[in-house]
């Protein structure tokens, strides 16, 4: 390979939009539903998913949920409202501070990481509550970079029914976002889980998304050799090492819980029935 490798869209953007909107429409339909719920954080991934869902199902069939905690950045809510206005979907804003604070007090927890996990799970609980109320499915927003680095809360933002952007690296989600009309403020800001003030993903991961995308693409999609990645991609060896460490350490998050095989056919092992069975 020569020159700087950029991770660009795997398909022409209009085809990619058609593919992902069709995925949402057909797979939600086959599950017997016509509606979706999306948690909108004010960040890029959920903005892209909201716009895709609105195009797939018509805006009135998509509920945008904005679920800030009291330390969430005011920009997050502002940006969430901006993309909801573009999507034209109904929305609800619910402050999760009372629930999270009640948990912190009752459980005696003031560790920011644990509280961050609780916030993610509080949001998940609200998304699924609305989904049941509205007969809708929860659409996830984790991108491929996050999935492969395990950068999510198990059963929090990692819990959903289906996900249109899980095979797109961060840079690919950004290109799709620009195509779909995601507001510029969202396209340009530093990605953040916004679980505490001033947090950015890149700081917490110890990696830039640009490096993470390229290393992951090289290792996963191109089946490149780890020992050649730094040289071929022109990224620091430390970035390659960090990616490898995070990927291996979080493999459990990309699998369903293990079940001990006792009999002839076992759920999760050799009970090989498709999800779309008869649909």
């Amino acid at each position: 390979m020569s020159g700087r490798i950029e991770v660009t869209s795997p398909l022409e953007l209009p085809d990619l939009e058609k593919l992902l909107a069709g995925f949402l429409r057909e797979e939600i339909g086959k599950a017997g539903f016509a509606r979706a719920v999306v948690g909108v954080s004010g960040g890029l991934d959920s903005a892209v998913v909201l716009l895709l869902a609105a195009r797939a199902l018509a805006p009135e069939n998509v509920l945008a949920l904005v679920l800030p905690y009291r330390t969430s950045s005011p920009d997050s809510v502002r940006d969430a409202r901006a993309v909801i206005a573009v999507a034209g979907t109904p929305s609800e804003e619910i402050d999760i501070s009372p629930m999270v604070d009640a948990f912190a007090a009752a459980a005696g927890c003031d560790d920011p990481l644990r509280l961050g996990n609780r916030m993610a799970r509080e949001r998940m609980a609200l998304l699924y509550d609305r989904a049941l109320r509205d007969r809708a499915l929860v659409v996830g927003t984790s991108n491929k970079t996050e999935l492969l680095l395990g950068y999510s809360t198990r059963w929090g933002d990692g819990a959903y029914d289906l996900n249109p952007v899980g095979d797109l690296y961060k840079a690919q989600v950004r290109a799709l976002g620009a195509h779909l009309g995601v507001p510029r403020a969202i396209l340009e800001k530093a990605p953040s889980a916004d679980l505490w003030p001033g947090q950015t993903d890149e700081q917490e991961l110890g990696l830039t998304y640009a490096d993470a995308d390229r290393v992951l693409w090289y290792l996963v999609d191109q089946r490149g050799r780890p020992e050649r990645a730094a040289e071929e991609l022109g990224v620091p060896q430390a970035a390659v090492d960090r990616v490898l460490r995070l990927m291996t350490a979080t493999q459990f998050k990309r699998n369903l819980p293990l079940i001990c095989k006792v009999q002839l056919r076992t759920v999760g092992i050799d009970f090989r029935l498709p999800r779309d069975w008869g649909r």
């Binding site: 390979m1 950029e6 991770v7 660009t8 795997p10 690919q172 693409w217 999609d221």
Partner: peptide
């Protein structure tokens, strides 16, 4: 199944 190559310089 559709599967793109994921990078500008097509393989």
């Amino acid at each position: 199944p559709l599967r793109g190559q994921g990078v500008g310089s097509a393989d």
